[in-house]
């Protein structure tokens, strides 16, 4: 088990190198930060001086090497736009995104899993059919539209919930949390629903499909033939067997949540990393974009690692040998 985890970690290194290379390579050729920073009226001399100061006159490989070497120390240079260390910018924005993504993921799981089990157990009931029909909305409604509709109803028309920002946040060392204040929690409701609804319906439909499949299996029939209670059969026997694919998808989806959070954060002006990325793209702020991409790659690698560990926990067949 430990050996396998170590090999997984080793496999992650080339992945990160390649992602680092790609992100750096692509962004080096996209946009011209110098003209953006200096404006239209800069003299050629000013441009050359700026290029030199930013290290942009160095050969490509040298720039890449410097970038990766600094990245290991979490040093991504200065933001072209804000002239602040990128790592500091990201760390400032990290809590907002993490709290939003975690709340959405918990929401999606807490609602999606039971609904999936229910609709899987009673596939033909009226309630199940209604839920399934409703879930189509969740699957097909684009995030930005859902966010705008929610703002329209709950903020503009009803005035119940704030339409943007995080509300009051409390600082713990470097972490600012919105979980501890009423306005922070109220601010979290609409964005997390917006971000989580798609994942929720996806998890629900996945669990339902898996449940239908598993409930047809011989071991469920045998469990019934032994007179076990339905609760034991559904949750002790069936749900457990649906978990491997569910864990896979949920793991990938948490990565997806971080990705989708770009849209949600923009709609709700949520001061997270997604919003930072959008602002950076608009300003061709290469260091921020590169660092963001690398960070997302790290997040995916970590999530995959957690998913692999969970496989071992759930499925005893994976524990022996390979």
């Amino acid at each position: 088990m430990i050996a396998q985890l170590a090999s997984r970690l080793l496999q992650a290194i080339p992945v990160l190198l390649v992602v680092g290379f790609l992100s750096f390579a692509i962004f080096t050729y996209v946009g011209d930060p110098v003209s953006i920073m200096l404006g239209q009226n800069a003299t050629p001399a000013m441009r050359i001086a700026m290029r030199h100061a930013l290290g942009l006159d160095q050969p490509f490989l040298v720039q890449y090497w410097r970038f990766m070497a600094r990245a290991i120390h979490f040093n991504f240079g200065l933001s072209y736009r804000l002239a602040l260390p990128v790592s500091q910018l990201l760390l400032q924005r990290l809590p907002a995104t993490t709290e939003l993504v975690m709340t959405s993921a918990v929401l999606a799981l807490a609602v999606g899993l039971p609904l999936g089990v229910y609709t899987g157990i009673r596939p033909n009931g009226f309630v199940s059919r209604s839920i399934m029909a409703g879930s189509l909305v969740g699957v097909s409604l684009p995030t930005f539209l859902l966010g705008i509709l929610l703002i329209l109803f709950f903020s503009v028309l009803l005035g119940w919930l704030p339409s943007f920002g995080r509300g009051h946040v409390v600082d713990f060392a470097h972490w600012s949390t919105g979980f501890l204040t009423v306005s922070g929690l109220r601010s979290l409701i609409l964005p997390s629903i917006t971000l989580g609804l798609f994942q929720m319906t996806l998890i629900m439909r996945l669990v339902r499909t898996e449940m239908l499949e598993v409930l047809r299996s011989d071991y469920i029939k045998f469990a019934r033939a032994r007179g076990l209670a339905p609760r034991v059969i559904y949750f002790g026997h069936a749900l457990r067997n649906t978990l491997v694919p569910v864990i896979t998808i949920v793991g990938l989806q948490i990565g997806g949540l971080i990705g989708f959070s770009i849209v949600t954060e923009t709609v709700f002006q949520w001061p997270g990393m997604g919003l930072l990325l959008v602002q950076s793209i608009q300003n061709a702020d290469i260091p921020v974009m590169s660092a963001y991409l690398l960070l997302i790659a790290v997040v995916f690698v970590v999530i995959n690692l957690i998913v692999d560990i969970l496989y071992y926990v759930v499925d005893p067949r994976l524990r022996v040998g390979r």
């Binding site: 011989d218 469990a223 019934r224 033939a225 007179g227």
Partner: peptide, 24 residues
């Protein structure tokens, strides 16, 4: 349910699929 297992037991065809793989 109180008849099944308690008064009438059942044995199925394929032992590879009748046992739940995730439970000891």
């Amino acid at each position: 349910r109180q008849v099944r297992g308690k008064r009438i037991g059942a044995i199925f065809q394929d032992p590879l699929t009748t046992l739940n793989p995730l439970l000891s």
